[in-house]
Design a protein around this nucleic acid. Sequence first.
DNA 1: CTGCCACTTGAAGTCGACTTGAGGTCAAGA
DNA 2: TCTTGACCTCAAGTCGACTTCAAGTGGCAG
Lengths: 140, 140
Amino acid sequence: MQPLDITEVARRSGVPASTLRFYEEKGLIASIGRRGLRRLFDARVVDRLALLALGRASGFSLDEMSRLFAGNGRSRIDRRVLAAKADELDGTIKELTAMRDGLRHAVGCRAPSHLECPTFQRLLKAAAAGKLGARRKKAL
Amino acid sequence: MQPLDITEVARRSGVPASTLRFYEEKGLIASIGRRGLRRLFDARVVDRLALLALGRASGFSLDEMSRLFAGNGRSRIDRRVLAAKADELDGTIKELTAMRDGLRHAVGCRAPSHLECPTFQRLLKAAAAGKLGARRKKAL
DNA sequence: CTGCCACTTGAAGTCGACTTGAGGTCAAGA
DNA sequence: TCTTGACCTCAAGTCGACTTCAAGTGGCAG
């Protein structure tokens, strides 16, 4: 468990050094010392970063996460919060599935214009109703 | 097909007037005239807004959409683009499904810490590998 | 001992999609 | 005619998660 310098952490985790500094400032990770100016991290920070990546991918914000597993590395994450996130994801998945099916239908649909296709119109209605209003960022 | 004033469009579509002005500025919708200062819209703008909502929910950016169905209201949307988006959604859905299953597992898992559970660790690894790195915004 | 240069800091900039605010205008009701 | 108040314009602000920049520092090779 020898300390890793920030560049090494960046290399191992794929997280840019600027982001590591940012995360430290936010209290999401902690350095264990310095060599000169240079931050040193415990090797376990790599797991921690993986956990953060997981959280981000699940839709947690950085603020949520700093509240959720504050301080202790061996975070005991509240199972209810996890379950709630899983449910939220479930909803999102349903929406996106509807979207995807609708889009695929539109691809093959022979109506003169998408706007005249009943299936597409159902999609539109759903979208307009805000049911499908999940604003997503692009995947990596 | 009598013109609707901006407030009426906002009421019918659920889209705030400020957003309608913003969309017009971006060329995503067009007003057909004014009554005094007040914009007037063709009633079909409501369908257009539904289409825009659909696009947003599918992951199109506003810029993409203004390029995609520029000008013509009766937009003939390129089927290849639609298919590509559907595929993209498919990928996202797979990722989120993996996330959800992992989270659910973590909820019930009896390992002393999530970090010691093999299933959770697989998730972490996947997340760290960036496979699950889809950055999403919260649903409405 | 000297330079190099990757690291340091704090502040500012970026991106997308809007929202908010200040100050102005005009159709309609009293 | 006057007032009201919702709309108008244009500029600036917001939010989250970072990235970039300018200026400074210090470990280490030569």
